[in-house]
């Protein structure tokens, strides 16, 4: 299916947006579940093990087993915890992750065939809410998602939780700067904050991809993206070897599962931003653009697992050193050079 320009699109109705929202919720939740399986398999192969093998063929039904376990596990709320905040915190993580996904292009647009009753001929857009400032909105929503770990850690009356919450605040406040500055240079080149504009700017083959013009920004954005999604070199928030499970220490059952879904949804969001902003988005030869963007997203997802298998955790002071003394100056210099080149 070809991605069309905004002008020739059919009108987007409320029903189409609702269908799109339900689609995103269902598919991304399922992918998050499947992602855990993929993660265990990939890690296992990189460490020369087999990973989950017992449930179903090749361990495939492990997802169902994990799901049943998560749903039926007792939901424990500690006695001294601030109960309301404790119960709300996981919902914040999961909800903001999905709200962020509402303004990124996730699947291709399509029209429901007219032989289906009630919903026939409804146009389902590629982006649920196509804001002009899509990139900023997604980054802001992902930032708001970090309130989940913060509130969870502070409300549970557990010292590991407090350490996890403190690390959330520190990590978020520093890496937010790098994310913003690193993506500023491509925004300056394109002159727009809309994902559609980014896609159109890079039309016309691999040589037009922004990664060739902004390699430094790409690397910086990836590193900051790892920090924002708490993936391994920077997952100090729930560093098992140091702080038991950090902010998630007291959580069990589905509330813990919501943190998990939120994290995986955020990984997908970061992958989508990276592929649309730096790797050309939907643009590749003809009708199979949507297939290529799924391949790009899958590659970034795999990269996150690969890095987890290859790199050890960093210490908190190394994290701060890396952010403030290396990445931030590099990002500022990159923005400056881009501005000078554009002016000359």
């Amino acid at each position: 299916m070809e991605t069309t320009l905004i002008e020739n699109l059919p009108e987007v109705g409320a029903v189409g947006v609702i269908i799109k929202a339900v689609l995103i919720l269902a598919v991304i939740s399922a992918i998050a579940g499947f992602g855990t399986f993929i993660e265990r398999k990939v890690l296992a192969f990189m460490q020369r093990r087999l990973g989950p093998m017992h449930v179903g063929p090749y361990g495939l039904l492990q997802i169902a087993a994990d799901g049943i376990k998560l749903f039926t596990k007792e939901d424990i709320i500690p006695q001294n915890a601030n109960k309301f905040i404790f119960m709300v915190a996981p919902v914040i993580t999961a909800a903001t992750a999905f709200i962020a996904l509402s303004s990124v292009p996730v699947f291709p647009d399509f029209t429901i065939p007219s032989w289906i009753p009630l919903l026939g001929d409804t146009f389902v857009p590629s982006i649920a809410s196509d804001l002009n400032i899509g990139i900023l909105f997604v980054l802001g929503m992902m930032a708001a998602g970090l309130y989940g770990p913060l509130l969870a850690g502070m409300s549970q009356a557990n010292k590991w939780g407090i350490i996890g919450a403190a690390r959330t605040a520190v990590q978020f406040l520093s890496y937010e700067v790098v994310t913003g500055l690193s993506i500023l240079a491509p925004i300056m080149l394109v002159g727009s904050l809309s994902f559609v504009e980014f896609n159109n700017y890079q039309a016309g083959g691999i040589s037009n991809w922004l990664i060739w013009q902004q390699p430094l920004a790409f690397v910086l954005f990836l590193i900051a993206g790892f920090a924002e999604t708490n993936r391994t070199p920077f997952d100090l928030l729930e560093h098992e070897a140091e702080v038991v499970s950090g902010y998630a220490t007291e959580y069990s059952g589905m509330r813990w599962g919501m943190f998990f879904i939120g994290e995986y949804a955020n990984m997908i969001t970061v992958s989508v931003i990276a592929s649309v902003v730096f790797l050309g988005g939907y643009d590749v030869v003809g009708v199979y653009g949507w297939l290529f963007i799924i391949a790009k997203i899958a590659f970034f997802f795999f990269l996150m697992l690969w890095v987890r298998a290859a790199w050890p955790h960093v210490r908190p002071d190394q994290l701060m050193w890396l952010c403030w003394k290396v990445l931030m100056p590099l990002a500022v210099v990159n923005v400056l050079i881009t501005a000078i080149v554009m002016m000359v």
Binding site: N132, Y147, M154, A166
Partner: peptide
């Protein structure tokens, strides 16, 4: 839209800094 997102990003960060004092 732009001011809305700026409000979101700025205050999410600002209140997060307040949290660290509360902590």
């Amino acid at each position: 839209d732009f001011l809305g997102v700026v409000q979101l990003i700025v205050y999410v960060g600002a209140v997060m800094a307040l949290y660290s004092f509360a902590m």
